[in-house]
Design a protein around this nucleic acid. Sequence first.
DNA 1: AAGGCGGGGCT
DNA 2: AGCCCAGCCTT
Length: 356
Amino acid sequence: MPDSLVNRLATWYAGEKHRYEFRLERNPYRTWITEIFLQQTQIAAGKDKLKTFLKRFPDVKALAKGPVEDVLAAFQGMGYYSRARNMHRAAVEIVKKYKANVPVVYADLVKIPGIGHYTAAIVASIHGGEKILALDANHARVLSRLYTIGAAQGGQAFREAAVRAAAPLFETKMPAGDVNEALMQWGQTICKKKPLCDKCFAADFCAAFAAGRQADFPRKAERAEALEILWLMLVHRKGNKYQVFANTGKFPFLAGELMFPSYTVLPETRSKKAAAETLMLPEKIPAALIRKSLAKAQNLPADFRHTITRYKIAVKMMFTDTSQPGGKFLTPAELKDKCHSSLMQKAIRRLDKLEF
DNA sequence: AAGGCGGGGCT
DNA sequence: AGCCCAGCCTT
């Protein structure tokens, strides 16, 4: 076997391939669920919950049957709960449209809720043999260093350069799925943020290593500055139940979640040139109530803090005698079940500490 | 193209 | 205790 990058990769991967339990018994359904689970999640953190999930929902029909509350419950603690909602929606769609067979064609996969370029590419390459780069952060680290790709990660120029750089790997005998998985595992175990170049089987192929510039790749786009905001929650209690509303309006965070009526002021940002914008939930919290509560809240320490992307949020909870039309009344136990966001979970834990 | 979504690892 | 991570979605 002549010495080449792909031969080094294939030889290394042959010894690594079965390192993970989820690679032993494979089908398109299991691969799809596994990839969704392990997105934005370290393998060590997600694999136990993944195992339980696959036992509870062993195939696409079981997942479609749900109910979605069970899917969410089995996903509790993983974060990014739209992944669970989308998986359930997708399962229903796959049962109906594809007779309960998870597609293995990229063009079909990428149209399914919750499946984007990466997941479609990895499933299509493993189970359909499609020669298509599944570009995740691991692939980005490996390829950008091997070929000193200078474009900022995440942009279109980076994607094009990465696809061009990886193309020769797919024109070999190495199965397309193995190419994608080997690159990924390389990024996870060797070509990490702090790369282990002395353990790397291909350091002599690496342009960044040759230049001593491993730390310069992948280049990151400039980060938006962090912003401090106040989030006022108006809590109305009746007996042992609290009024919550589905956030289906214009409130900027936690779309679709059940929430206490909330009010926040977003500061002016570079992208939104308009002056500070006021948003509220439900549609019409009386302005007088907001003013009164806000004036009181300004002088109180935050009940808790929470960060969502670049917003550093100080949440202040205020009891109010005024109930709003609509919504529903739930006990704390029910709230713990039905509110998935960690921000709301923090608020729920504070309820018995609040005073009227 | 920009920005929400969140728990965990790292410093 | 605070910063960083990064697919998929919506806007």
